[in-house]
Write a protein that binds this DNA or RNA. Structure first.
Lengths: 221, 221
DNA sequence: AGTAACTGGATAGTGGCAGTATCTTGTAGG
DNA sequence: CCTACAAGATACTGCCACTATCCAGTTACT
């Protein structure tokens, strides 16, 4: 298959295919001559995955490269899952850290809060995990906005998150071929996050509507 | 307070403050002379919120403007919650829709799937809701990637999402002043989504670790 | 009154990202 | 041999979120 056919099959412009190849997201075709290369089904597949990660998952090109790299170097299924999880961008950008005394104290207390939560949930996570860092940063900022979680609230959310993660793993688990599993895992981890977010919004919408109905119907009660 | 003091108080460069004002995110100060304006605590507060939405919530300037507009025009608490929810960006970009016959069919079946889910959950949501649209688009794409949900899985996720939404509303509910509630709601809706996402990742990380331990320790079982 | 420092506002410029277009050289097939 | 297309390198574009510069007006201080 030549590049123009690959383009027609996937709906991705030729120039973009070349761009993805340049950026290391797509392997080069098998060269048959100095100015000719052959592409296969795996390229179609890979392009689909790239499109899904960038448009559905909202990943940047750089993040997509990381994630695909983790997929490709998936020796064992578990290491692949871990690598993918770490390669996904953390949705919280750490603040530049003012350097103030209280700043540092707030950061420390947020970290302690995260550690306490992890302990309470019986989870295992190294302090170096980007998720731990990101969570601490987010909690610190929320506290500053006077919208911090109580430990109880946080634990409640964490319990629900654990249930969601269990479902995620079940969805990813059935496959045993490392590559297939890695691809599935990418989809489940990266793209199903937006799906859950949408479900949550729908549920919020419904809750708001109920709340509105309650206060309208029975304003005095 | 002059603009330079506002800048020092918040850590936001003067040029950025001017930019936010230009973009309609920050109201102008009270002009005391042709080249002099007075800023107050509400500006400090608003800047904090802007920073939180853009860096923590990952919102674009345009989305932030939408959301803040919803906060400002919060007549009743419920309308504010709804407006904010709709103003938040949907994390799934709809595909350009190929126009093929099967494309259209896939889109229709995804929409039916969403409608069925909403019915099964007893939720109420108009078809025009951006969340409904986005969810249908995401499900369609996942099906195309051969990673679609079974109705049971989707329902399980939806049930968990409902629990999360209930917690969200509880966190937002205690306040009754519309403006305070709107600000709180923005934070809960926009910024706590990343927090939950991080919790989920942590839980996934733990689950993966457990799975790895299981297969390592008892490879034959 | 004079002047340095600062202010608000308008306008233009910067850097990064995600492509898109152009150009050169090299086949392939009739 | 000639036309059409292929591959790869390089340059360009549009958008976004700032950032810098410029100008005229104001203030504080001497």
């Amino acid at each position: 298959m030549k590049i123009s056919q690959l383009s027609r099959r996937t709906g991705v412009p030729v120039a973009s295919i070349k761009y993805f190849r340049r950026e290391g997201l797509l392997p080069a075709g098998r060269a048959t001559a100095a100015t000719l290369a052959e592409y296969g089904e795996e390229h179609v597949e890979r392009l689909r995955l790239i499109k899904a990660l960038t448009t559905l998952g909202g990943l940047s090109i750089a993040a997509t490269r990381e994630v695909l790299g983790a997929v490709d170097h998936a020796h064992s299924t578990e290491s692949a899952l871990g690598a993918i999880s770490y390669a996904l961008p953390v949705p919280v950008a750490a603040q530049p850290a003012g350097g103030t005394e209280e700043e540092a104290q707030a950061a420390a207390s947020a970290q302690a809060e995260v550690a306490a939560l992890i302990g309470a949930m019986g989870w295992e996570a190294p302090d170096t995990s980007p998720h731990v860092q990101g969570l601490a940063a987010a909690l610190k900022e929320l506290r500053r906005l006077e919208a911090g979680y109580t430990p109880g609230e946080l634990a409640a959310y964490a319990a629900l998150a654990e249930s969601v993660a269990r479902l995620d793993l079940e969805r990813a688990a059935p496959l045993d071929d490392p590559v297939a599993l890695a691809e599935r895992a990418v989809i489940v981890f990266a793209i199903c996050a937006p799906v859950f977010e949408l479900l949550r919004r729908l549920a919020q919408e419904d809750q708001v509507r109920r709340r509105a109905a309650r206060t309208d119907d029975a304003p005095g009660c």
